[in-house]
Simulated scan of single mutants.
Amino acid sequence: MNVKILLEYDGTAYCGWQRQKNALSIQEVLETAISTITGEKVNVIGSGRTDAGVHALGQVANFKTNTRIPIDKLPYAINSKLPEDIVVKHAEQVAEDFHARFCAKSKIYTYTIYNSKFPSPLLRKYSYFYSKPLDINAMKRAAEKLVGIHDFKAFMASGRPVKSTVRHLQRLEVVQNGDIVKLEIQANGFLYNMARIIAGTLLDVGIGKKDADEMTSIIKSKDRNCAGKTLPPEGLCLVKVIY
């Protein structure tokens, strides 16, 4: 049967989702745990490759298995073999042709900025600390200009070639709650480091380094050097995958 699972994980200790030869990945740990309880060699397909240090509240994956473990008991069985920083929250049987990556319609990420005079020891692994005041209204205006179907080549880091750099950025909101500034980003797909570069560009607007109206020209430039820096991974979290 084809099993779809919902995952939450703290990415701090891992090289990212994808299995690598010389570093520990979420995929490897998960495949090892599932193989241990099923006695099968399994290939776990994720909805996307979160990078090193990136977290997930709602990562989705699927794998094929012949296990006789009841589907409602499967999360408990898998979790018994997983470390504390990875948890399977739900499992269900899906159609044989379901593919966690190719069937996804869109994904929602959040990027969290901790904007305060002093850093927070409790939030240091889950946010980017920035001590100077931010112009939230300017960041919101800039965000609006990025929404839509655009060529986001200027917001892509080199290293992962793709057929097309056009993406549909469906929603980009800047939400402030006290010292927490959260960027909520929904798109039909993300280029390599796209969310973190968008966050870095909006931060530049917030500190007055860039103007909100520059977003259009940055998109048109297709030049990575025109956008902001890539913010660190710890502030990024995959919140939901929509099918």
Rank of each mutant, 00 (worst) to 15 (best):
L30F: 05
L30D: 04
E31V: 04
E31R: 08
E31M: 11
T32W: 14
T32C: 14
T32E: 15
A33H: 11
I34D: 15
S35G: 15
S35Q: 14
S35M: 13
T36D: 12
T36K: 15
T36V: 12
I37S: 14
G39Y: 09
G39M: 09
G39I: 09
E40A: 13
K41V: 10
K41R: 15
V42K: 15
V42T: 12
V42F: 14
N43A: 13
N43C: 12
N43K: 14
N43H: 14
V44P: 13
G46H: 01
G46R: 00
S47A: 15
S47D: 08
S47E: 09
G48Y: 00
G48R: 00
R49Y: 00
R49Q: 03
T50E: 00
D51N: 09
D51T: 05
D51Q: 06
D51V: 03
A52K: 13
G53W: 07
G53F: 11
V54H: 03
A56M: 01
A56R: 05
A56I: 00
A56Y: 04
L57K: 13
L57I: 04
Q59P: 07
Q59Y: 00
V60L: 03
V60F: 00
A61H: 06
A61N: 02
A61M: 02
N62G: 05
K64S: 12
K64P: 00
K64C: 09
K64I: 07
K64T: 07
T65R: 14
N66G: 05
N66P: 00
R68H: 12
R68T: 14
P70Q: 10
P70A: 05
P70N: 08
K73G: 05
K73D: 12
L74S: 07
P75S: 04
P75Q: 12
P75V: 10
Y76F: 14
Y76A: 11
A77V: 11
I78D: 11
I78E: 09
I78G: 10
I78M: 13
N79M: 01
N79R: 07
N79Y: 02
S80K: 09
S80D: 08
K81Q: 13
K81V: 01
K81M: 12
K81D: 00
L82K: 06
E84H: 06
E84P: 01
E84C: 03
D85C: 06
D85R: 07
D85A: 08
I86H: 09
V87T: 15
V87A: 15
V87Y: 02
V88F: 03
V88P: 02
H90Q: 15
A91R: 07
A91L: 12
A91P: 14
E92V: 15
Q93D: 01
Q93C: 07
Q93S: 04
Q93N: 03
V94E: 01
E96W: 06
F98I: 04
H99E: 10
A100I: 06
A100K: 11
A100G: 12
R101P: 01
R101E: 01
R101T: 02
C103L: 02
C103W: 08
C103R: 10
C103G: 14
A104N: 05
A104W: 06
K105A: 10
S106F: 10
S106M: 09
S106V: 03
K107P: 02
I108K: 09
I108W: 01
T110I: 07
T110N: 10
Y111F: 12
Y111G: 11
Y111D: 08
Y111R: 10
T112Q: 11
T112M: 08
T112S: 02
T112K: 11
T112H: 07
T112D: 05
